[in-house]
């Protein structure tokens, strides 16, 4: 249990190492990445046409592109709904997560006692609660937002706590030697020192939030990208279905890129 940061921390380190992918990519490597994409997509298109694979099994990339562009006006409002659920749930979960992490790490004894419960919150798929939440809150935004907050909050909290736990006695002594107050020590030493791990937590939390938002939309209610997935697949509109899948992977990548850039700007001193 004394393991630094537990599961979330470990995932965080994994994602951190993944970030080497984004740094120092040369022009040649970018060209190679694009060339690979062209070959894979083109090859897929050719193979699906050559073997005459029916669209309901796997539509060719061109059909997906056509469906995505043609039906985009119909999909757009659902994207909006998903974003509302994701952003508000994530904001609530992340806010509470960071706040609790900052408080709880000040009390090592209390932290030890609640650590197992946080671990349970981190490892339980909050999607499992959605049917119950729908029973209680209906088919609107509320159950989804709650599920997203429950999924992202603990992830943010466990990683932020790892960050806040990194106390450096010398840096705190430095601040104290200039007469810094407890609050100043928090904002000028502890918080900046924790920031890299908080960012990792936010990134993982946001991705967990996206998964949970889409999952919750698939369970019930007539709107959202998750709902589109179930609708399109039940109507065997596979090009549209894969179009929505593409939007979702784009959202995931966007989350990654946003936090990667924030980390590069504000936490690059770490490496």
């Amino acid at each position: 249990m004394s393991d630094e940061g537990g599961v979330g921390g470990r995932v965080g380190k994994g994602l951190q190492s993944l970030s080497t992918f984004g740094s120092g990519t040369t022009r040649l490597e970018i060209a190679a990445i694009i060339a690979t994409a062209v070959i894979v997509i083109g090859g897929l298109e050719a193979a699906l046409r050559w073997f005459e694979v029916p669209h309901y099994i796997l539509p060719p990339p061109s059909a997906i592109a056509v469906a995505l562009v043609g039906d985009f006006p119909l999909i757009l409002p659902h994207l909006g709904h998903t974003l509302v659920v994701l952003l508000s749930g994530f904001a609530i979960g992340a806010g509470i997560g960071i706040f609790l992490a900052a408080i709880i790490t000040q009390f090592p004894f209390a932290e030890k006692i609640i650590a197992p419960y946080i671990l349970i919150l981190v490892t339980t798929p909050m999607l499992a609660l959605v049917p119950l939440l729908i029973l209680r809150f209906g088919f609107g935004y509320e159950p989804r937002i709650i599920a997203v907050a429950l999924a992202s909050g603990p992830m943010v909290m466990i990683n932020s706590a790892t960050g806040f736990r990194r106390v450096d006695a010398n840096k705190i002594a430095l601040a104290r030697s200039y007469g810094a107050s407890v609050l100043q020590i928090f904002w000028k030493i502890r918080a900046p020192m924790a920031l890299p791990m908080i960012l990792v937590g936010l990134m993982i939390g946001a991705i967990f939030g996206l998964l949970t938002a889409v999952g919750a939309e698939m369970v019930g209610g007539g709107f959202g990208l998750g709902n589109r997935l179930t609708t399109y697949s039940s109507m065997i509109q596979m090009p549209q279905f894969f179009g929505v899948v593409l939007i979702l992977s784009f959202l995931g990548i966007l989350i990654y890129v946003i936090f990667f850039l924030i980390g590069k700007k504000w936490a690059s001193w770490e490496t």
Binding site: N170, S177, G179, L195, A267, E270
Partner: peptide
């Protein structure tokens, strides 16, 4: 009894704030 501005302290290792 507490840190005073007349006293400056230089730590082992520079102890700069890396951020």
């Amino acid at each position: 009894v507490k840190p005073r501005p007349e006293i400056g302290l230089v730590f082992q290792e520079a102890n700069l704030l890396p951020w």
